[in-house]
Structure formats: structure tokens, C-alpha cells
Design a protein around this nucleic acid. Structure first.
Lengths: 122, 122
DNA sequence: CCGCATCCTCAGAGATACTG
DNA sequence: CAGTATCTCTGAGGATGCGG
């Protein structure tokens, strides 16, 4: 509740960067699903729901690049590709989960604030 | 490290929503600055640095709408407008700060993962 | 001083079709 | 099955000028 330490600009930039990284449309959804265990491409696709093939690929590539997921190809026919969270990915899930928990608890307060604001500025 | 409880899709959606809300380019920067106390428009502008007038206005309106900041107008000449975090805003700072802390600690691991990935896929 | 209105640009997101 | 390739479209973000 109180300003513990002055928020340094560079720290805020780092926060902002990671938040934008996980703040895109699909990342947390994908990471959340993978939090329950490894999944194949299309399993993940239908688990998330509503995501296009392209966006899932893009999202997974980004997560792989940043070291949050591993991509394992089984050279079978038909091909099989498993995606799994790395340790880093699981660790990320902790603070993200905390924020999610906060979100769940406070949805109503935000909704009420919005209704009030929109009412005043109608 | 282990899947404690199955991640429900609707929960993930809520997480995703709030993350996108605070995951835009300026929100956390602005909220971070306001975390040290109330600021006037242009104080905030120069404190954040690099933000355009339009984006600061847009960001502040959004935060006001969602109940994270209050906007106080002093009917003086020239006008003076103070922005301050609400209780909800301060509470948001907690999980966001936690994520930020995680970001600060793990920047190097992400950077290394990226370098490795980019090296392999050169 | 504060911030709205307007115009412009460009990256992100989706739809669709095709390949190993 | 698991992608890549291409196209389109929306909207976030920035620059500039005016108004209370």
C-alpha cells in the first residue's frame, strides 16, 4: 500500500517488456494449458480453442525462443510434435498465476468501475 | 512445478484479459510512477519519458475507467490535474510488482535462451 | 497546462490455400 | 499431423495542430 522503494525507470521498463511478452492474445492461454503437462500441436490447438494454426505456431515459436517451452519432434509418419514447459516456463507460471488470481478476485470491482465510468460519461 | 489443479479455460481467459490490459506499452510504466504518489499530467509525462501526449491521455483514461486511478481537476488558471492510484490501483501493484521482480531476476536467462535459439536458427 | 481532433503508419491477428 | 506462404484488415501508437 505504501511506496516501499522508488520505482526505477529501468526496472519498470523490464516489467513492461515481460508484461508485453506475456500480454499478447494467446501466450498465457497456451502456457496455462501446457502447465498441465506436455501436449501435441493439435491437442494444444483444441485445448486453447479459437486460435488459428498460424497464431499457435507463432506463439509457440516465441515461447521456444525465449526458453519457456521445448519442442520435440518425433520423426514418425504422420509426424508428431510435443510441446512442454521448461523449468523457466513453470517458474513463469508462478507470478503469472498470482496475477491471474488477483484478476479472478477483482473482476467484479473492475466491472463495477467501468459501469460507473461509462454511466457518467454517457 | 507440478500441475496443482487443472487450469480452467475461463480462468485463463480472465488472466489473459487482465494481462492484455496491463500488457500494453505504457500502463505499467504509468502505474509504476504513480505508485510513488500522485502526479500532475506533465510531471507524469516527463517521469515516464518518451510517451506522447495522446498515449498518456489514452492510458490514463483507461486506468480511470477501470478504477485504477482517480483524476482530480483543480479549476485554476492554468488548469491543474492530479492523477493518483486508487486502492485498487495499489493492490494491482502487488502482483504486477511480483511479476516485475521475476522479470528482473530472469532477464539474463531469457536473453541467453534467445541468443541460443537465434544462433541455431541463423 | 491539459488534452481533444485529425491524419498517418505499421505490426499483429485472422482467413485461406498449399506442402513434407 | 504439423506446419509454411500469402493476403487482408484492424487498431495501437505517433505527429501535429487547435481549443478551453
Amino acid at each position: 500500500m505504501l511506496p516501499r522503494h522508488p520505482h526505477r525507470t529501468e526496472d519498470c521498463r523490464a516489467i513492461s517488456e515481460i508484461l508485453q511478452r506475456v500480454g499478447d492474445k494467446w501466450t498465457v492461454l497456451v502456457v496455462g494449458k501446457l502447465g498441465d503437462g506436455p501436449l501435441r500441436f493439435n491437442e494444444l490447438r483444441s485445448a486453447v480453442g479459437g486460435i488459428s494454426q498460424k497464431m499457435l505456431t507463432t506463439t509457440l515459436r516465441g515461447l521456444e525462443r525465449d526458453g519457456f517451452v521445448t519442442r520435440t519432434v518425433f520423426p514418425t509418419i504422420p509426424p508428431r510434435v510435443d510441446y512442454e514447459l521448461t523449468d523457466l516456463g513453470y517458474e513463469l507460471l508462478v507470478p503469472v498465476g498470482a496475477l491471474g488470481e488477483w484478476a479472478r478476485k477483482n473482476t467484479e470491482r473492475v466491472r463495477a468501475a467501468r459501469a460507473r465510468f461509462d454511466g457518467l460519461h454517457a
